[in-house]
Amino acid sequence: MSIQIFILGALSEGNCYPYDIKKKIGKHLDQTEARITEGTIYYNFEVLHKKGLIEKIETIQSENRPDKTMYGITDQGRLALEESIYKVFQKFTTIQSLYAALVNLDKVDNQKIAYLIEDIIVKQRKKLDYIDEQKPEEIKVSEDLMDALWLMRDHAYHTIESNITWLEKLLRHVQSRALRH
């Protein structure tokens, strides 16, 4: 869905060719380990077109080149974009799962996003509490396995702690955007 959010977000700013959007997405993905192929882009364009979220605006034909089709977003597509962004925050899994939504914050109610982020932070803190309650030493296992369990517990704890710190920064950013609009 994140690719579709990127596509809808880009088209909400103006009509584009799929290749142009691939270049835009590539700039955002350069910051991550994710890679995107032209096939993936064209497949997602086709899916969005079949759903009625985007429409073909113009097809340019030239002799020695494949047809080049420009697309635009529909009203239904604008609504779907907004709903998709909210859904990404509601179904939070990882920080990376938010990337496509982050570049489209100008297309949603930032106050609503702030509430969703606050909810994520509460859930992440509950995970920390749960990890705190776990006592690997109460399990009868070998010393090597015990060491591994403590290391995994430590990694999980610090990852969640780091996520909370980042989410708090995001929350402040979104709240300041909400105040400006």
Rank of each mutant, 00 (worst) to 15 (best):
I3K: 01
I5G: 00
I5R: 01
I7E: 04
I7D: 05
L11S: 06
L11A: 02
S12F: 03
E13R: 14
Y17T: 07
Y17F: 12
D20L: 09
D20Y: 07
G26Y: 02
K27Q: 10
H28C: 08
Q31E: 13
T32W: 04
E33P: 01
E33F: 10
A34T: 13
R35Y: 01
I36P: 05
I36W: 01
E38D: 14
G39I: 10
T40G: 06
N44S: 00
N44D: 02
V47P: 04
V47A: 08
K51H: 05
K51A: 09
K51G: 00
G52L: 10
I54C: 00
I54H: 04
I54L: 01
E55V: 09
K56S: 08
E58Y: 08
S62T: 14
E63W: 04
N64T: 11
R65T: 11
R65W: 02
P66V: 03
D67V: 06
K68Y: 08
T69I: 06
R78K: 13
A80C: 11
E83S: 14
E83D: 15
S84E: 10
F89S: 02
Q90Y: 00
K91Q: 15
F92W: 07
S97I: 01
L98F: 07
V103L: 09
D109C: 00
N110D: 03
A114S: 14
A114I: 10
E118V: 01
E118N: 10
I120C: 12
K127R: 15
K127F: 02
D132Q: 14
E133P: 00
K135C: 05
E137S: 14
E137D: 13
I139F: 06
K140H: 12
K140Q: 15
K140D: 15
S142N: 06
E143C: 06
E143D: 15
L145C: 07
D147G: 11
A148D: 15
W150H: 15
W150C: 11
R153N: 06
D154G: 08
A156C: 05
Y157W: 02
I160T: 13
E161H: 12
E161Q: 12
S162L: 01
S162R: 05
S162K: 15
I164K: 06
W166V: 12
W166M: 13
L167A: 04
H173W: 03
Q175R: 13
Q175F: 00
S176G: 06
R177K: 13
A178I: 08
A178S: 15
H181A: 10
